[in-house]
Amino acid sequence: TFEVERIVRKKIVHGNTSYLVKWKNYSSKDNTWETEDDIRTKYGDLVDDFEK
């Protein structure tokens, strides 16, 4: 199971928000862009903290 360590960046393309996710126990080269809906479902607190 993958676990988010932190959110690195945010991008908005054509009105759709995605977050660059750093995965726990993986290197930064393994970071992936994930949709806001996918990340918010399980890691809403991390998204809220990133947006502060």
Rank of each mutant, 00 (worst) to 15 (best):
T1V: 14
T1W: 13
T1C: 15
T1S: 14
F2G: 14
F2S: 13
E3W: 05
E3C: 10
E3F: 05
E3H: 05
E3N: 04
E3T: 06
V4H: 02
E5Y: 03
E5P: 04
E5A: 04
E5C: 07
R6W: 10
R6M: 15
R6Y: 14
R6L: 09
R6D: 09
I7G: 00
I7F: 01
I7P: 00
I7D: 01
I7K: 00
I7L: 07
V8M: 09
V8S: 01
R9E: 11
R9F: 07
R9M: 14
R9Q: 11
R9A: 15
K10N: 10
K10Y: 04
K10F: 04
K10M: 05
K10I: 06
K11T: 07
K11P: 00
K11M: 10
K11G: 05
K11Q: 08
I12Q: 07
I12F: 06
I12L: 07
V13S: 09
V13M: 10
V13P: 01
V13D: 09
H14I: 05
H14V: 08
H14K: 12
H14N: 15
G15I: 02
G15P: 02
G15L: 04
G15R: 03
N16K: 15
N16D: 08
N16I: 15
N16E: 14
T17Y: 04
T17P: 06
T17G: 04
T17H: 04
T17S: 06
T17K: 07
S18H: 15
S18P: 01
S18L: 15
S18V: 15
Y19I: 02
Y19N: 00
L20N: 01
L20V: 01
L20D: 01
L20E: 07
L20Y: 09
L20A: 00
V21C: 03
V21H: 01
V21E: 02
V21N: 01
V21I: 11
K22S: 05
K22G: 03
K22H: 05
W23C: 03
W23G: 01
W23P: 00
K24F: 08
K24N: 05
K24V: 08
N25T: 08
N25G: 15
Y26W: 07
Y26E: 10
Y26T: 14
S27T: 11
S27C: 09
S27W: 06
S28I: 07
S28C: 15
S28F: 11
S28T: 08
S28P: 10
S28V: 09
K29E: 13
K29M: 12
D30H: 15
D30G: 10
N31M: 14
N31C: 15
N31I: 08
T32L: 02
T32Y: 01
T32Q: 02
T32G: 01
W33G: 00
W33H: 01
W33S: 01
W33F: 02
E34N: 03
E34G: 02
E34S: 04
T35L: 12
T35S: 13
E36Q: 06
E36R: 05
E36S: 08
E36A: 11
D37N: 12
D37P: 07
D37K: 14
D37T: 12
D37R: 11
D38P: 03
D38I: 10
D38G: 05
D38T: 12
D38V: 12
I39S: 02
I39Q: 01
I39D: 01
I39Y: 01
R40L: 08
R40C: 05
R40H: 04
R40I: 09
R40M: 08
T41S: 13
T41C: 11
T41W: 10
K42V: 11
K42E: 08
K42T: 09
Y43I: 04
Y43R: 05
Y43P: 01
Y43N: 08
Y43D: 04
G44Q: 13
G44N: 13
G44I: 06
G44A: 14
D45W: 13
D45S: 11
D45P: 11
D45K: 13
D45V: 10
L46N: 02
L46K: 07
L46S: 03
L46M: 12
V47Q: 03
V47P: 02
D48G: 05
D48S: 10
D48H: 07
D48M: 09
D48Q: 07
D48K: 10
D49S: 11
D49F: 10
F50W: 11
F50D: 01
E51S: 02
E51P: 03
E51M: 05
K52H: 09
K52C: 08
K52D: 06
K52W: 07
K52G: 07
